[in-house]
Design a binder for these strands. Structure first.
Lengths: 191, 191
DNA sequence: CCTGTCACTTGACACCGTGTCAATTGACAT
DNA sequence: ATGTCAATTGACACGGTGTCAAGTGACAGG
């Protein structure tokens, strides 16, 4: 199916670094079809990018990965498992994310799409925070909502980008630091 | 001087919200001159934006604000003062920052300019971390460099944006949370 | 009073990337 | 043979940046 070939082509290009060099013409060439044929399947660049993220989520089985964090028994374990699952997913979608993020400013639809995806992440954060609250291990300093905001911000793609891409941290270092930071700022009595 | 009028116009427009709607023509109109006259003073949009940030730093006396944090005696005080100074500066430059950030992806020069400005912030972070290290109050978990990376990331404009703009936190809430987060993740024995 | 010069204006234009439109081709099915 | 469907080619509009050339008006010095 041509549609799939386009999605694969987009993915391949976005994955390989220089996010913003990826134009519709490039994707078409990579897929071995004409630029106009791309428009036959995806009305706008934004929609193509969104479709690519959804395609990735499917191919990479995000759902299965998050299942692990959902099955954790204690809140603390759940928090840790969630950070690990999401944190390790970031590098795989980073090319995509960067391209989508770059359109946020100019493209209404791209912004909405990215916001949707991030709300899903926020759900995950909230679930982890609620698990802590249920166990009574959430720090008394913050409400569930504030704690969720904080965790969500900590785990943003931008923060990953800054630490791993710009500062040269290893992925493991990133994960460990985020876990520790989350624990210290969200879990009660954990010096 | 026309140059100043242009800078003031750019500032006024950027400050008032919708960063990405600000085109060269808009700035010219706001300054009461022709679009081409702007190019007489600033060769490119990126250079105009950069000049505007420098102009803002001058007008807003960033240097004086940071002096306070430099004169703190203990490392912990210095950390706190720095977070307060920088954290309270962010909302004043946010319009600018957003416009510059939006060009990061497309414009080489804008990216370099923004990166420069952020390196300056990083210097401030590093100074605070070194003050902690000197006092022996830096957590043993992290090297000076790692601690600097972490603090710098915590205090990014993007994080401020997400918490204050997107999540609706108050400025005071943001400052307090950042101070606490920094303390918990950088200062030794502070549960 | 003439002549420069300097800041600015007007208007036209090239470039780039996105998205649109119309006419055409080639394969496959009925 | 006919229809249909995916894809092709080529042209074009739009928006925003940046360039270029010619013109205008004010002010200064001889």
């Amino acid at each position: 199916m041509t549609r799939t070939r386009i999605l694969e082509a987009a993915w391949r290009l976005l994955e390989s670094g220089q996010a913003e060099g990826v134009r519709m013409a490039d994707i078409a060439r990579e897929a071995g079809i004409s630029r106009q044929a791309v428009y036959l399947h995806f009305p706008t660049r934004a929609e193509l990018l969104v479709a690519t993220t959804l395609y990735l989520d499917e191919v990479k089985h995000v759902d299965k990965r998050l299942a692990a964090s959902r099955s954790a028994t204690t809140g603390v374990e759940r928090l840790s498992a969630f950070i690990e699952a999401w944190g390790n997913y970031i590098p795989e979608i980073y090319g995509m994310a960067k391209a989508l993020l770059a359109m946020e400013n100019t493209d209404e639809e791209a912004a909405a799409a990215w916001s949707d995806r991030m709300q899903a992440v926020r759900q995950g954060c909230e679930a982890a925070v609620r698990a802590l609250a249920r166990d009574g291990t959430l720090t008394p300093d913050r409400s569930v909502e504030e704690a969720t905001d904080l965790l969500w911000t900590l785990l943003s793609v931008r923060n990953w980008e800054q630490l791993v891409q710009d500062c040269g941290w290893s992925q493991g270092q990133y994960i460990e630091t985020m876990k520790e930071l989350a624990r210290r700022s969200l879990v009660r009595d954990s010096g």
